[in-house]
Nucleic acid binder design. Structure first.
Length: 867
RNA sequence: GGCGGUGUGGCGAAAUGGCAGACGCAGCAGACUUAAAAUCUGCUGGGAGGUUACUCCCGUGCGGGUUCGAGUCCCGCCGCCGCCA
């Protein structure tokens, strides 16, 4: 397409000019406390985007949806007099750059730098008001020095159960501090992905496949670094309450942490002497203990070999091998056929002394609870399926009706139930519990167990500790060395620990990380070798919002004053503090947002930061779909790149369209004709103030005059100030733009346009369309005027919004039949009288009796008639 | 299966329990133009009636309920999307 389409307004002549000026004048630089230009009287506002991974594909129109929203808020808050922190940076460690390196031999650093440059240029073209002096990059040694430093703080800490806080490990009084560190080494089975050549966290594995690439993942035991996030499970749930987050995200986190209350119960092994090793189980239904007719251990449970009878041992070993090849998801699938093997051993049910068989089955996971369960087939679906398959006894101990006289597990003639019931009801066949409703029975049984010393109340979490090491090159090396089998930390002075240069990034094909190939680097001293794992990509994003506060600090991860200022609560709303507004996609609901809260709490406990939570207000932007209504993807060919929009329509049209599409949080499809519509709107704004002469030169329009607005005009102006101000606060940008369209439509037909009203429009529209408004502002005020970005936000006069006379609809039985015009504060009697006399109303009332007249002042009149 | 979200014109959507469909897209008509584009003006949920001004009926996924009045609140379903299983 070579035809030079005439642009509806000459955005191409001024957009880059204003971008250059903002950059040159540091218009959006926020000074820190103590810096030049800092005004302590200024309230602060910290508005943050989830920083992107700079991929090679560049920005598509989905990325800047959130960025534009925060940009509008940032510019708005600045005009309202806030000191606004609005930074951007790069989450640049990660697998794609490393895989590209494996394919091409090009160092990931080079790829990363090139991608960052591309992303930054695309963002610049959109005119986002970032403080680029605060740009950070997680792969910069000056940044990851502090990621490593924070890891060391975690390594040096433990969770004191008495204070419920992270404390220096020196306060631990036990004999083996390594057993309580918040960063520890574990030999547990992990998610190993042979294709990627690395282990993955539970959060990175989706339906048995890697989240990145969809490769198969298997379980295998490996020596790995773990972070003890489970210690914070309770606080991570409880402290969600005070956050201004979408309830759905809070719920997602609560479900992920998966708190369940119940009891831990000890079953002795049959034939063992009292006090000998037993099997502990966790159950949320202690009330059903009388219905426990067998036990199941996870196949990898350490007791299995000991319990197993000689004749069962071969079958057990065979089954364990098969299990090892399955993922947790495959194992716990409800619909799946249950399998298992009898161990040959028996346990004693502690409440009724019954001898019950012990099985192993893969539907019991070693990682959840204690790795063993008591099976109550009558009241648990999986136990039911299992019992049906292997003909194990089933005893009903919960009835849906209160039944008296059916006492005791001793009753010999109970009929097995016809179906499994997990519902609450009333205890039966349960000795002392009989007749109790499920809730009471739970409590009663727990108390009973505690008295007998065979169990106790317990809380279990689904959350697992965070598998924190990866077998990759392109990540932060651990500041750890090994001497013999013992790990020890590097000193702070040895940070940053920079990964060595390398040409061959290929995975070793074994669980040995790529760094293990570099024998020189590994050798730390005659006796010590370096840790060769690296940290996961999440590490850098766990604390980047803190670094933005003080990105150049060389002596601390963030300066105390800067942290206190930017992360403080906003006096006005007495919130506990943190980032004032954080916008990003839902995909991070349980990964980044949980990890970052975890790290933040450790740093808070250790006194390094001043707030218990990092992000006070969180908003998720909705996905932008392709024009076909499908998720954008390369394979569908429906991806719209930002440049495809910015080049032909301009940055302002791009920004405004992104915001006009619909509610920020909603999923919505892209539409190029929609972009054209918004372009028409901006062109109309342009022509409100400019007109084109015979030679095709744009000049200030003669219709713009220094006259007061008429009554209707000033009402529109002030209604627009009100609407736009309120809508930006609630992030309802689509309706804010609709109101500005109403403004423009009102003045488009007018012969003269008051310059005061035009100024207000430019102020209100500036956060949305900063280039065109700056240009027009300059047209109105001259080239030497101060920038619009430095103008204050306008205020509205409520008095101008009130009409003297209002039109009231008159309803008969809820249907509008006529309208009357009355004075705005007319008395009810007067309104009623006028309503009854309205021309159309009479015929509706005729021959009927008026039962009631409802008058809602300023809204409507409803006449209720009968007959 | 559980939890959460969502359902309004041809399309994106708007509506503190108070005139459903603001605003925009698409479409139709008119003005300007030799013509087109651009621009400006008007119309545009469905149906019925009337010569016009207009009038009436139906309408927010389905079925009930509360209320003078329900897109909005309550109960029960159905579809789609997401998360967990």
């Amino acid at each position: 397409m070579t035809t030079e389409r005439r642009r509806p307004y000459p955005f191409d002549r001024f957009e880059s000019k204003w971008q250059a000026r903002w950059e040159a004048e540091h218009t959006f630089h926020a000074p820190n406390p103590g810096e030049e230009g800092f005004d302590p009287a200024c309230p602060k506002y910290y508005v943050l985007d989830m920083f992107p991974y700079p991929s090679g594909a560049g920005l598509h129109v989905g990325h800047p949806e959130g960025y534009t929203a925060t940009d509008i808020v940032a510019r708005f808050k600045k005009m309202q007099g806030y000191n606004v922190l609005h930074p951007m940076g790069w989450d640049a460690f990660g697998l794609p750059a490393e895989q590209y390196a494996i394919k091409t031999g090009q160092h990931p650093r080079i790829t990363t730098q090139r991608n960052i440059a591309g992303f930054k240029e695309q963002l610049r073209r959109i005119g986002l008001a970032y403080d680029w002096q605060r740009e950070i990059n997680t792969t910069d040694p000056a940044y990851y020095k502090w990621t490593q430093w924070i890891f060391l703080q975690i390594y040096h800490s433990w969770f004191n159960p008495e204070t419920q806080r992270a404390e220096p490990v020196s306060t631990y009084r036990g004999s083996d501090p390594d057993s309580v560190r918040l960063a520890y080494v574990s030999e547990a089975p992990v998610n190993w992905c042979p294709e990627l050549g690395t282990v993955l966290s539970n959060e990175e594995v989706i339906e048995g496949k890697s989240e990145v690439g969809g490769h198969p993942v298997v379980r295998r035991p490996m020596r790995q670094w773990m972070l003890r996030i489970t210690a914070f499970a309770e606080r991570l749930i409880d402290e969600l309450d005070g956050l201004d987050w979408p309830e759905s995200i809070k719920l997602l986190q609560r479900n992920w942490i998966g708190r369940s209350e119940g009891a831990e119960v000890r079953f002795e092994l049959a034939g063992a002497e009292a006090g000998a090793e037993g099997i502990d189980v966790f159950t949320t239904r202690p009330d059903t203990l009388y219905g426990a007719t067998y036990m199941v251990l996870a196949p990898e449970h350490p007791l299995v070999e000991r319990i197993a009878s000689a004749e069962q041992l071969p079958a057990i070993r065979d089954y364990r091998e098969k299990t090892a090849r399955k993922s947790d998801i495959e194992r716990t699938e409800l619909a799946k056929d249950k399998t298992g093997v009898f161990t040959g051993g028996f346990a004693i049910n502690p409440v009724n002394g019954e001898r019950i068989p012990i099985w192993i089955a893969d539907y019991v996971l070693m990682g959840y609870g204690t790795g063993a369960i008591m099976a109550v087939p009558a009241h648990d679906e999986r136990d039911w399926d299992f019992a049906q398959k292997y003909f194990l006894p089933i005893r009903e101990v919960v009835s849906d009706t209160p039944t008296l006289g059916l006492s005791g597990g001793s009753s010999p003639c109970e009929a097995p139930p016809l179906a499994c019931s997990t519902a609450s009801g009333f205890a039966i066949h349960s000795g002392p519990l009989d007749g109790l409703p499920t809730e009471d029975a739970r409590r009663e049984m727990t108390a009973l167990l505690e008295t007998k010393g065979v169990g106790r109340r317990s809380i279990n979490y689904k959350l697992r500790d965070w598998l924190f090491s990866r077998q990759r090159y392109w990540g932060e090396p651990f500041p750890i060395v090994w001497e013999g089998a013992q790990h020890r930390p590097l000193g702070e002075a040895e940070l940053p620990l920079v990964p060595p240069e390398m040409d061959d990034f290929k995975p070793t094909g074994t669980p040995e990380p790529p760094l293990s190939k570099l024998t020189d680097w590994i050798r730390y001293s005659d006796v010590a070798t370096r840790e060769t794992n690296t940290m996961p990509q999440w590490a850098g994003s766990c604390w980047y919002y803190l670094r933005y506060c003080d990105p150049k600090n060389a002596s601390r991860f963030v300066g105390c004053d800067a942290e206190k200022y930017w992360m403080s609560g906003n006096g006005a709303n007495s919130k506990p503090g943190g980032v004032d507004l954080y916008v990003g996609g839902t995909e991070h609901a349980v990964l980044h947002l949980l990890y970052a809260r975890f790290w933040h709490k450790i740093l808070f406990d250790l006194g390094h930061v001043s707030t218990p939570e990092p992000f006070q207000r969180l908003v998720n932007q909705g996905l932008i779909l392709g024009e076909d209504g499908q998720k954008m993807s390369k394979s569908r060919g429906n991806v719209v790149n930002t440049d495809d929009v910015v080049t032909p329509y301009g940055a302002d049209a791009f920004r405004c369209y992104e915001m006009f599409m619909g509610p920020l949080e909603q999923m919505k499809p892209w539409s190029m004709t929609g972009v054209e519509g918004i372009t028409r709107f901006l062109a109309r704004v342009w022509r409100l103030i400019m007109e084109e002469d015979q030679e095709g030169v744009w000049r200030r329009s003669a219709a713009v005059q220094d006259l007061p607005a008429d009554k209707a005009g000033s009402k529109v102006v002030h209604a627009t100030i009100k609407k736009v101000t309120e809508d930006i606060e609630t992030l309802s940008f689509n309706t804010a733009i609709a109101q500005m369209m109403i403004f423009v439509n009102h003045f488009t037909g007018a012969a003269t346009r008051p310059v005061s009203g035009m100024r207000v429009l430019l102020q209100l529209l500036n956060p949305f369309a900063p280039h065109i408004t700056e240009e027009l502002w300059e047209q109105l005020h001259g080239a030497n005027s101060s920038m619009l970005a430095h103008e204050p936000w306008p205020a509205y006069d409520p008095a101008l919004l009130v009409e003297d006379e209002i039109e009231l609809p008159i309803q008969i039985n809820g249907k509008v039949r006529d309208r009357i015009t009355v004075k705005k504060d007319a008395a009810a009697e007067l309104i009623e009288q006028a309503a009854m006399e309205a021309p159309e109303i009479a015929k509706w009332i005729e021959g009927k009796s008026v039962k009631k007249v409802v008058i809602v002042p300023g809204k409507l009149v409803n006449i209720v008639v009968a007959g």
